[in-house]
Design a protein around this nucleic acid. Structure first.
Lengths: 345, 345
DNA sequence: TTGTAAGCGTTATCAT
DNA sequence: ATGATAACGCTTACAA
């Protein structure tokens, strides 16, 4: 077969004169054999004369015949397709989660249809509307509440990413933000910090913020809304903007915890632009453990998450759901962050 | 519907006693109506008594009925699925291309099945074997030569990423490396550099290297194999290792061009570890324009590529192929890099 | 408003 | 080695 044959859509006349894609029937007719024989040739089964096989294949080539995946799927069970809904492909965190999902899916012979919701609830619903028709299960990040999800799910199994059992009735894979912040705040407080702010991101339930507040209370540190700035964008730019505001309301902070590494890096940059040295005047703690954090200066101290594992775990949850088993709950469905101390805090 | 209904696989007994998924027929039987009526209820068509509709929906819920996407696809044409093969999700370049593909696909109402080949030719073939069955067209990065691709393609339209018409007989979307290097080298030479090395990456045809050599020749700069180090990994670590070697063989270079931004960042780090100041002792030029480049110090001067556009263009090529049109060739199917001067060169 | 019948494109089974 | 026939699960006519 010549590689550039693909351009010539040697298609077939339909009864109404319009072009339609060639079917197994067309090939059979052209080759002068039965459909069954075409099937044998195309699928490379035995029990066929090499000569007829060649003739059939030639006919198929001529008509640009390709078996319909739908007709195939009807007859051969077992093709599993998972939908994966990611909020923001530009944030390096999510491609890594996706890589974990893809890896685990590939091992099981599943396919993954990907959807970028771009942090938009309407697009989340679109994703569900489409994927509930085209996928056997859905994995993803969603801001929308359970009821909305259920309404657009049409009964398709769903595994939520970064939710704990407290935040949803669906199967989920979570991040143990509390355990992470415990390490992170111990580190900060241990270094003598008492005035610690946060740059929050909000996506779905505010787990990281709550864990932060929990620790703040534990150590009896001062806190109120002025100590937490909200970053509209989960990006470096968002972090910079948030940090500017935080420094306006609380110029006396000596440390800041970022919702994610991107925001934390933004915080570092904004702080330095304002003449603060990091970490001497201001310590910065991130959350995610992006490899990006090793490249900035000073390198970012962060709560590292095994993102691939998160993705693999989600696939495992899907498998359980499909098998009719109870999904993992609690610690088995958690990824625990690990404090990675570099130089920013 | 309760959200956690999903756990209870209220499935149906098959004739042989095994469980099978409920079909429209099962629902019809349970609700005491015809299959057609079930279809009407499930698809929310009119022409149905609200009461029967409710009864049918209840039955469907009970049996955990979900329409088979294959059976649906057989009857309703028009669902388009594209396969997307990415070599390395960990390199921020590719998620951005993917985002472009996803965006354009979503606009056309297409779905995208994603596959991570992890720069492995065997996995590339696996991807093709699977996607040629499950997708209507394939977009992707491939190291494998045309013949291999054709053999595993089974006639499915293919659009290659980052290939020019010279490098393949398939439809493609390319990057005009020559135009990019022209700007880049002019910048370097204009700044007085004469001893310029390269950290090559090799993936498929060595377009960037050739463009580099072309410029080197144009300016009559010295060059031989010793001026080019090969980075096995397209990563920061790969760039660091490559730079170490390059500095061993050619300690006198004053500038280096990196195959991509990750490698270039690695080069900067290795050079600085060796006591060279960037850009004073060694200028570093990248290729890609990752946002990462703005965050390192000094910020990376690079040949910026509109990656989303690359992805969108690929989808457009697929659309042309499907319409039986000639794919775009030459400049219309190119993305031209743009020199972004920051501080590393 | 509901049911009946036909057909979508493929593969499996069983003959020949 | 090849062909006829029956599924597969659904929707779109059309008939009642």
């Amino acid at each position: 077969m010549r590689a550039d044959d693909q351009q010539w859509e040697t298609s077939v006349e339909g009864p109404d004169g319009t072009r339609r894609r060639a079917t197994i029937h067309d090939v059979a007719k052209l080759a002068g054999v039965s459909r069954q024989t075409v099937s044998r040739a195309v699928n490379d089964k035995g029990e066929i004369d090499p000569a007829t096989k060649e003739r059939v294949l030639e006919a198929a080539r001529l008509l640009d015949y390709r078996p319909s995946r739908f007709a195939r799927g009807m007859v051969q069970k077992g093709a599993v397709t998972a939908g994966l809904v990611i909020p923001d492909l530009m944030n390096p965190f999510f491609p890594e989660v996706a890589a974990g999902v893809l890896e685990a899916a590939e091992q099981r012979g599943w396919q993954v249809v990907m959807w970028d919701s771009r942090i938009d609830e309407a697009r989340e619903r679109d994703a569900l509307d489409v994927l509930s028709h085209q996928a056997d299960a859905i994995i993803g990040y969603f801001k929308s509440p359970d009821e909305v999800l259920a309404r657009h799910l049409g009964g398709v199994p769903l595994v939520l990413l970064e939710r704990g059992p407290q935040q949803t009735r669906f199967a989920a894979v979570g991040i143990d933000a509390a355990a992470g912040l415990e390490q992170g705040m111990a580190h900060l407080v241990g270094a003598g910090h008492r005035r610690i702010g946060m740059l929050d991101g909000v996506y779905g339930p505010g787990l990281r913020r709550e864990a932060f507040l929990e620790e703040v209370r534990r150590y009896g540190l001062p806190v109120d809304d002025g100590w937490i700035a909200l970053c509209a964008e989960h990006s470096v730019a968002g972090g910079e903007a948030g940090m500017e505001r935080l420094l306006d309301t609380r110029p006396d902070i000596t440390a800041v915890f970022g919702f994610n590494d991107l925001i934390a890096v933004g915080a570092m940059r904004a702080a330095r632009r304002r003449g603060r040295r990091v970490p001497d005047d201001l310590a910065v703690l991130g959350f995610d453990g992006l490899s990006l954090g090793e490249l900035v200066e000073p390198a970012l101290t962060t709560l590292h998450i095994d993102k691939r594992r998160l993705g693999r775990l989600a696939v495992e949850q899907v498998a359980r759901l499909r098998a009719g088993e109870e999904p993992l709950r609690g610690a088995d469905a958690w990824v625990v962050p690990e404090l990675v101390v570099r130089t920013s805090a």
